[in-house]
């Protein structure tokens, strides 16, 4: 790892000498943030315990926020930390603890035969194609500053706010509808089905099987009218 970092730093210094305007501080920040992002992502995939996966996800999200700051995108970096690391991961952790599924999973077991080689091949093919495409052609084509320029004279928040409330006003309104729909959907999913009237001689202490049978009946009754 240290050798790789050293090599990347050397390459960074060489690039600095070649282009002349990328400072070593920028490159150092980028390399460290990229290492944090990638190691966190790998940790999410390989961790056996879902709680560890969630914590690794926090690490990745912080790295992404650092990369946002490095690109002078301060507002989204703050929102990234608050919304993703603060809300979404907490929601994940809450559900993990609520369901009590924080037990370890056997990663070595492979339920579907040939699934992993196929996944590796598919992902390698995709990422190679993507990188090759960027290498043989231009990464960016098109007109500059179509929806508004990102000049450094005004603050990032002011620019973003102006753009959201003028150019992107209708998508912003649609977003509110989406959030309302999501909240209603979550409430509908979390609602317990109303208690089913059962015959007094029915034994209710059987556990899972007895619970699931009337519940499905109830679901059918809900759909039909």
């Amino acid at each position: 790892m240290a050798v790789v970092m050293h090599g990347v730093l050397l390459a960074a210094t060489a690039a600095t000498a070649a282009t002349g305007h990328a400072s070593l501080v920028d490159w150092g920040t980028f390399v460290v943030a990229a290492a944090i992002v990638l190691s966190g992502a790998i940790g999410v995939v390989v961790a056996r315990n879902p709680v560890h996966s969630a914590l690794m996800l926090v690490m990745t999200l912080f790295g992404i926020a650092v990369l946002f700051v490095l690109q002078r995108d301060d507002f989204l970096a703050a929102v990234q930390v608050i919304v993703y690391a603060g809300a979404i991961v907490v929601l994940f952790l809450f559900v993990i603890m609520f369901l009590g599924v924080d037990r370890e999973e056997n990663i070595a077991a492979e339920p579907l035969r040939g699934q992993r080689p196929l996944a590796v091949a598919l992902v390698a093919l995709g990422v190679t194609g993507l990188l090759l495409l960027g290498e043989v052609s231009k990464w960016t084509i098109g007109a500059l500053s179509v929806a508004g320029s990102t000049d450094s004279s005004t603050s990032n928040v002011a620019q973003l706010g102006t753009s959201v409330y003028t150019t992107y006003l209708f998508p912003f309104e649609v977003t509110s509808a989406l959030l309302v729909i999501a909240v209603v959907g979550a409430v509908a999913l979390a609602r317990r089905p109303p208690a089913v009237v059962t015959a007094p001689d029915l034994d209710l202490d059987d556990g899972l099987v007895d619970e699931s049978a009337p519940a499905t009946d109830d679901a059918h009754q809900e759909v039909t009218p």
Binding site: V79, V83, S145, S149, V164
Partner: peptide, 23 residues
């Protein structure tokens, strides 16, 4: 591309991600 539209799009992706996680 010096274009603020990309950052606004990230804003919307955040909202969609939150809704997706909740549901």
């Amino acid at each position: 591309l010096h274009d603020i539209g990309g950052q606004v799009l990230v804003f919307f992706v955040l909202v969609v991600a939150a809704a997706e996680v909740v549901v």
